[in-house]
């Protein structure tokens, strides 16, 4: 158990530009490990990182697991499937169990918005909490790896124009990205049908548009969000065909982008719905880079939260309440 003050990474809104750049720069150093014969560092030896997943996400879990293991931490995977969590054990009781096991950090994916926040601040545990996606709220490490990928591809973020397209209303990836990219000086434009645009989007640090085509020639990067097919049944849009026609990224639209522009997707993709196979497999697509960068960024987050006597990033602990 770390002795010093404890911090968490719950939202990109909590990251200053300096914090975010520190994470990206640290990740850049970790990225170089990939070329070495031994990809492991002894830094977090003896520390325990728990991956607590209330929602299936093999990709995110493996990414965090790899990151923790490359830093020599002990990793415990605690998944809702096949454990007492699925039998109705409360988040609180699970948290108390993890506390008793001496977890130094809990990486939590939760279907409820605020799940990570609650785990961090309800006074149940003393570990650092890393939000690996909570409901329709935030997914800060995804935004960090997107920012890392953009910086690597575009040479920087200041003044770069990033267009985020799709189901913004239900997307934690969009929420985290808008805040982080704004903090890092990029200009974000959200594109969605009005039904999938957040109610109070005017107050967000970005601009918005209901049409994709006019935005494309001015975009340095386009981030396509995954569309849940069940949204159609909830009348957010009439048909998949209409959605794809108005908001999908396909070859014709890709041709309207500037030469240097990239197309991103957080995965998993619905090929043929929000992104065509041709685009997904093109040289502009950063999809596989995003996955690789995810490990480096998550190593950086774990190192900066757990590596020293006190964390270098994240939100101050609010202390135990009531």
């Amino acid at each position: 158990m770390s002795a010093g003050p404890r911090r968490h990474l719950l939202s990109t809104a909590d990251l200053s530009a300096e914090d975010a750049m520190l994470i990206l720069d640290t990740a850049a150093e970790f990225a170089r490990l990939a070329d070495r014969p031994i990809k492991k560092l002894p830094t977090l030896r003896g520390r325990t990182v728990v991956n607590l997943f209330y929602e299936d996400s093999t990709r995110t879990r493996i990414s965090f697991e790899t990151a923790a293991k490359r830093l020599s931490a002990d990793v415990i995977n605690f998944s809702a499937k096949g454990s007492s969590v699925s039998k109705g054990e409360s988040l609180k009781d699970t948290a108390l169990t993890l506390e008793a096991m001496g977890a130094d950090a809990v990486v939590v994916r939760h279907w409820a918005s605020g799940g990570a926040h609650r785990l961090a601040h309800a006074g149940w545990i003393r570990s650092a909490v890393v939000n690996a996606g909570d409901g329709t709220h935030e997914h800060p490490t995804q935004a960090l790896l997107d920012a890392y990928t953009l910086r690597a591809r575009l040479g920087g973020l200041e003044g770069r124009r990033v267009t985020v397209v799709g189901d913004v209303l239900h997307s934690r990836v969009a929420r985290s990205n808008v805040r982080l990219l704004a903090t890092l000086g990029a200009e974000v434009t959200l594109v969605a049908p009005p039904t999938l645009m957040p109610f109070g989007v005017e107050g967000w640090p970005c601009s918005s548009s209901y049409a994709l085509d006019p935005v494309l020639p001015k975009s340095d990067a386009v981030m396509m969000l995954r569309v849940q097919r069940e949204r159609m049944d909830q009348a957010f849009f009439p048909t998949e065909r209409e959605y794809s026609r108005r908001y999908g990224m396909h070859a014709d639209r890709m041709a309207q982008l500037p030469e240097h522009a990239v197309v991103m997707h957080p995965g998993p993709m619905n090929r043929g719905l929000e992104i065509s196979a041709e685009v997904a497999d093109s040289a502009r697509s950063t999809v596989t880079e995003q996955v690789a960068n995810g490990v480096s960024v998550r190593m950086a987050v774990l190192y900066l939260l757990l590596g020293g006597s006190e964390p270098a990033i994240g939100t101050e602990d609010e202390g135990e309440r009531r």
Binding site: T136, R175, G203
Partner: peptide, 10 residues
């Protein structure tokens, strides 16, 4: 429902 519900994802 308002700006805050969007921010909090609720």
């Amino acid at each position: 429902e308002g700006e805050l519900s969007d921010v909090l994802g609720l």
